[in-house]
Design a protein around this nucleic acid. Structure first.
Lengths: 156, 156
DNA sequence: TCAAATTAAATCGTACACGATTAATTCAAA
DNA sequence: TTTGAATTAATCGTGTACGATTTAATTTGA
């Protein structure tokens, strides 16, 4: 019986801390962006989705899903809300009626100004050298890649 | 008119990438842990909650909320599910009837063995030197702290 | 050519997240 | 001591997430 008792349980410190540190940081970004995005009338996931459309307009639902790591079960209702608010349009492709093309409306494009201001604000508050942030992003992407591989190995 | 047009929109690269990198890494951990936790009959948030209880048993709901960054509106239903499954008990405090004390059951404590194995598996798949991970965690905690401060300044 | 396999999105059920409100208890000040 | 403020959970409504299934359109192969 080499297992620790619950009262002494610390978990495997490092992984425990990485996953929890990421959980906390993600929480913090959510909580920062949520109220400021509310002033634009959108949620944080809707903001992330719009960013993807700012970068590349007229994407299919599955294309958007690939870059956001979401599927139609999550995206469809989210996109319907953005459509109801008039920020995007959803139209069936002519060539392939199965595909739905998501496009920014004029109003939707107009959100980019407010979003730029908010991003600038967030970045300035990070108060961290650009190079440090660049390295952090690189490391996070590595961790992400490793965990995706881990998932494939462990549970398909 | 110095603002970029949507087609050229890149956002403020660094913040954009940090928040998105964290979003993606969090996703990856979620997707790794979800199926393996399912074999134990629990969800990822329930796993995080149990970790907090392994570290300190008999916490109040608000105490748990502080370390998990969650409030009763999220925790109450989650804890009720853990109680229904027999992993914890929820009892009103004798001294202060407003407080609910959350305690691990024998079965709940028994989960720690399986959880240790899973954490070991996750950590080994990270395939990264301990010191590197330690630094990453530190940086993430700094980013988190900065964003919490940013939120306070920007939207109370 | 036309039925079977494949693909894309939508739908459904369950479980978080969270702002806002409510209910019950305790504390505190007049 | 008694009313009003403060505290603690719980409740409610909306919006993600996601596994599993369904529907509709396209592709493939006999």
């Amino acid at each position: 019986m080499t297992k620790k008792k619950p009262d002494e349980f610390q978990g495997y410190e490092l992984d425990d801390h990485v996953c929890f540190a990421i959980y906390k940081a993600n929480h913090a970004f959510n909580r920062f962006y949520k109220p400021v995005m509310k002033e634009l009338g959108i949620t944080y996931p809707q903001y992330i989705t719009l960013l993807a459309l700012f970068k590349k307009d007229h994407q299919r639902v599955s294309e958007l899903g690939e870059c956001l790591f979401l599927e139609s079960n999550t995206l469809t209702p989210l996109l319907k809300r953005l459509e109801e608010m008039g920020y995007i349009s959803r139209t069936r492709s002519q060539e392939d009626e199965r595909q739905v093309i998501v496009s920014l409306s004029e109003t939707g494009r107009g959100l980019s100004d407010g979003i730029i201001d908010i991003q600038q604000c967030a970045f300035s508050h990070l108060d961290t050298p650009a190079e440090t942030i660049r390295q952090l992003v690189e490391q996070l992407n590595e961790v992400q890649a490793h965990m995706i591989k881990a998932k494939e190995k462990v549970s398909g």
